[in-house]
Write a protein that binds this DNA or RNA. Structure first.
Lengths: 252, 252
DNA sequence: ACAGCTTTCGGTACAGTGTACGGTGGCCGC
DNA sequence: GCGGCCACCGTACACTGTACCGAAAGCTGT
């Protein structure tokens, strides 16, 4: 696994994110090409399937050649993250402000981020210790922050409010992904899966105290089969959060 | 890596979670001991450092001996997850209802879950496709759902509201962990780290549009150094969410 | 055109991982 | 005392990220 002794070169990582990388060598290999290949693999097979050798194979190049352009896998994934964030607002820094008041803007932001997670589910699997300080991520932050400027929140509250909206999308997408992975991995529909699991649970759950959760779990399960559960959770949570923020702006 | 061809045995996994496991063999190995060893390793060194060989070493046993008690690593981590959830409410199903009205109860729930994440940060790193259908996780759901019963939410809204609170704790803990990992991995304080990063960013960020984010980022960074940032984010978000739920119960 | 140097490429190797397979040793029932 | 069974585990395989260093290709100076 990752060497940690010679302290990862922060400066180099940042320069790389902001486009300071060597031109093509004699095999035509470039950083953008490597990043694009990585994204393609992760989009199709997930982050677990992303390996340096697979990226190299896809580019018709030896595994070790990648290391002349990218310091290691962590930096590659950071580059991938920043790259896909360019898709969000087409580089238009007023994209969110443009759609209406701050509530409409936050709904727009939530929807765009949700769509991004659907296109690139591997974003949810990344466990990086450092924040991604790349150009597109920075710009995304600006776009999403602007509609909250001047509506009566302190700077710190602005950040907290945005974080709240984004975390909600993140968590909902994560839950959504969990059920869809269960589906694909087991090769069953949700109903089939429950048909296998339910009898076992019935046999084993001898706990008489699970009164409320049994009822609620049943109701959720029913809605669940109705198939558009995640969208409901997304809008419900968003409504709650926006109302809560509103209450913070205009108390009483 | 994980074999997937012979379809993971769902029934066996559930039975295992609910305590159906073989007694000690001639080396004294038991499932609870394996799970405890796994938790100890993950608590200290994180989930990445958890390997079947390390668990076996800690128990003075060969790596393959574990497979007589546990089908594989995924099931082991599921067992670990369920096990630590026993710590949350000391098996008292009325623990949350007891502390006051539903708002007080949700604060209590948030605080307990936050504490659990601090004790077992590896909970945030788990990427399992299936939900953990174990006894302690089930009971936790019941404990946390009860205070929301009968306050004017539909069953589905109850679940969504609880999910909202828990996701918020989850996301905040995740962000908190990210900065503390940056600290330990780089061996620098936050200030030192920024002292390295900031000049590089300044040199490379030639984007004139980042007006609001520069200001807000600065404010957050200052608060950030004040060191209790995550607790602030936790209570701010919780206030927003609870106000939003309140608005949903008693409109007007 | 050719020599020499620089830069880039990639084969091999190493320390890890999860876990399948099959041999072995110790315990239990007779 | 002894046959059989089963828990245990040594070995092996297919992977991973990446360090090291030889090889080859291209550019430069003459």
């Amino acid at each position: 696994m990752a060497r940690r002794s010679p302290a990862p070169d922060l400066a180099r990582s940042i320069y790389l994110l902001w486009g300071h990388h060597p031109g093509p060598g004699r095999s035509g290999l470039t950083v953008p090409a490597i990043v694009a290949a990585g994204i393609e693999i992760a989009d199709v097979d997930g982050l677990d399937a992303l390996s340096m050798r697979k990226v190299a194979d896809r580019l018709g190049v030896g595994a070790m050649s990648l290391y002349g352009h990218v310091p290691g896998k962590d930096d590659l994934t950071a580059l991938m993250v920043d790259a896909v964030h360019a898709e969000l607002y087409d580089q238009d820094v007023t994209a969110a402000t443009r759609v209406g008041d701050w509530r409409a803007a936050m709904r727009f932001v939530a929807e765009r981020n949700w769509a991004l997670y659907q296109r690139h589910p591997w974003l949810l699997e990344i466990r990086s210790s450092r924040p991604t300080l790349g150009p597109h991520v920075s710009r995304k932050y600006e776009v999403e922050l602007r509609p909250l400027d001047g509506i009566g929140l302190s700077d710190i509250e602005m950040d907290a409010a945005l974080t709240l909206v984004l975390s909600h999308v993140d968590s909902t997408a994560r839950a959504h992904r969990k059920v869809s992975r269960t589906r694909t991995e087991s090769g069953m529909t949700d109903a089939q899966w429950w048909a296998v699991v339910a009898p076992v649970l019935d046999q084993v759950m001898t706990d008489d105290d699970l009164i409320v959760s049994a009822r609620v779990g049943g109701a959720v399960g029913a809605e669940f089969d109705a198939a558009q559960h995640p969208e409901h959770a997304l809008t419900f949570g968003l409504d709650v959060i926006l109302d809560g923020i509103q209450a913070r702006i205009t108390p009483g």
